[in-house]
Design a protein around this nucleic acid. Structure first.
Lengths: 372, 372
DNA sequence: TTGTAAGCGTTATCAG
DNA sequence: CTGATAACGCTTACAA
């Protein structure tokens, strides 16, 4: 690898001049700059980022720590982080598979010197605390943390509100016996959604029964298997609010096999509003979660802290959710498929039609859906 | 941030000793080592990774460049890369949104000094060439590149074979007029799949007609809209092989709305075998693509090259695909939902039931499917 | 406008 | 076993 010294030698200038030529608008004559760049291009030189950040003590990189890197939700969050960061001149260093506090700490350490701070998705109590500890002199933003404000700024999702809204909607349709398929135990989102579900029932004068709360783990399979238990309940529920869309998919598949008509005999709702939700049969009523926006906010928050210097206020920011009514809940609403209206929010993705795989080709399809 | 010097001073030793204490098994007395670690822990010291890699000229990091970071497929590829790399003591530095050659080059440059090499997903011709140029003294592996061997080792997917297999399967069911919904123009996978589709028809004595090749862009919407054109064809196809699962989802949704029974009036197949494929109605016959394995192989290949020193052989490795027969193609095969059999291959994911979102909770559900 | 030289935080070499 | 000290590749005062 060519170094700055090689360029200096070949160009017949000092290394300082080469450095200046590469760092934009310092005091260098246009002629020398051009010459230096020519030589550099010829021998394939480009500044070593590690060395550079060692002297400047700025890496222009944000570390991103995730429990896992899987599925539509996470990729969407990362996309939000990536695009927002990039637009501000930052890169991101992603590291996943950090469920417990220990691996989280390890990962954070190994990022030392490589990042100016981190954004951590910490669904576990111990984890968020651990990060908070490490993060002295280290700007950190927590994403959807178990504990709202623990010395760290945080961004969360309005899980409770979303669940409350969708269940209330079912109640308005006249349903009284409404089951739910829960998410995995210990999962923040799952717990918040369950709280919202119960509260909505209670506020409508319906006594929530734990018998209506079927265990699940966010997988399609668990949704599929939950059908058996739901159909066995007496009285049989007329509606099921699944804690996420994947489980709703599995559930609907099983109900269909059992000959249950939806929504007439059983209304079903999901949570997350994944891309295929509108193409299910019947199209799935669900709660839209703006994963991209979550990532975007995290970065903006991080940048604000970074620029202001301090690790600052620890106020918790909450990203709202949106009820999306389609046909699976039985509410009258025929329109489909949904047109992609121009929407506020994230910048549209570029060059997607050219992208290589089974991913969607443009963001409008993903991000612009009819909301209610 | 505490440095090695702070620790040395407080521990009453030289910085060399501190360094040794942190670098495992050098010659340091257990007592000093313990002491040093105690002091370090007390003041929150941990070696600066950038500085370290500057002297060692090894970063133990692999850069990953993607055209985009979106959808099930990419996250699965990255997961394969991440887990494999981690198991070998490497981290990954992900950078996405690199559709064209220019941003790809920029990204590669900005990784200089931060990574020991890169894995690039380069669906575009210019892009892969550009990377090959840059990658002197730089170990690079191309993922699913447009051009197989251009001086760089590469890993690809057996798109052609997969498409050939699924179409042949349809032909065996007696179908003669088989349409396809294509992927975006210029997309490697899409083009290879189209080739396989045509070849299968031809080999069965059926003349492929471009009228049967409906444009699409891998999105659910495009699949949805393709239905209109398919139903207008005369003679009307009795089967459609969509270039990916998402389009199959959209297509099936539209066909159902049009009152077409599947598979009786119209057989439908997809490509990719996304998680929900088996929960569609009818369950989708498709081609399984081992995205995780793709990432895993890329890393193994990279490591092999890294250890052997050279940028080495440029032989193209190809990851096979698997036909997965379910009910949407009309072939007799009732069983469902599919049990998760123990499978060869990737290590199972850990701690997923605890993971925070709508992603699946365990890999068996994802990775172990019935194959035929 | 350009050059010299002192760091940035480590590791590695070579003495002790 | 431990301690100086010279790199690593770069930026940035300070001088010229």
């Amino acid at each position: 690898m060519a170094t700055i010294r090689d360029v200096a030698r070949l160009a017949g200038v000092s290394i300082a001049t080469v450095s200046r030529a590469f760092n934009g608008s310092s005091r260098v004559s246009d002629e020398t700059r051009r010459h230096v760049h020519d030589v550099a291009a010829r021998i394939g030189y480009w500044p070593n980022t590690a060395a550079r950040s060692l002297t400047t003590s700025r890496t222009l990189t944000i570390g991103v720590l995730l429990p896992d890197l899987y599925g539509e939700f996470f990729s969407e969050v990362i996309r939000g982080i990536d695009q927002t960061a990039r637009a501000e001149g930052y890169q991101i260093l992603v590291s996943s598979s950090h469920a417990d506090a220990e691996t989280l700490v390890t990962a954070t350490r190994s990022m030392r010197g490589l990042v100016d701070g981190i954004i951590v998705m910490a669904p576990h109590e111990g984890a968020s605390r651990a990060v908070t500890q490490i993060s002295e002199n280290f700007i950190a933003v927590l994403l959807n943390p178990r504990v709202a404000a623990e010395g760290c700024p945080s961004i969360s999702i309005a899980n409770y509100d979303g669940a409350y809204a969708v269940v209330t909607h079912l109640l308005k349709q006249g349903h009284r016996v409404i089951a739910t398929v829960k998410g995995p135990a210990g999962n923040v989102d799952a717990e918040e959604r369950l709280r919202g579900y119960r509260a909505a029932l209670r506020d409508a004068g319906v006594d929530p029964s734990t018998r209506w709360e079927i265990p699940g783990d966010f997988t399609e399979s668990s949704g599929h298997w939950s059908a058996r238990q739901i159909l066995r309940l007496n009285p049989r529920p007329t509606a099921v609010a699944a804690a996420n869309d994947y489980m709703a998919v599995g559930l609907m598949s099983a109900l269909r096999d059992a000959g249950i008509r939806m929504p007439e005999e059983m209304a079903v709702t999901g949570f997350d509003d994944i891309a295929i939700a509108q193409f299910l049969s019947p199209p799935l009523t669900t709660v839209h979660v703006d994963a991209y926006g979550l990532g975007e906010r995290a970065v903006r928050r991080w940048l604000a802290l970074s620029r202001s210097g301090e690790n600052g206020t620890q106020a918790g920011d909450i990203v709202p959710t949106q009820l999306v009514v389609r046909r699976s809940c039985g509410a009258p609403r025929p329109q489909e498929p949904e047109a992609p209206p121009a929407e506020e929010g994230a910048p549209s993705r570029t060059a997607h039609a050219q992208t290589s795989r089974g991913e969607r080709a443009d963001s409008d399809v993903r991000r612009g859906r009819n909301r209610m």
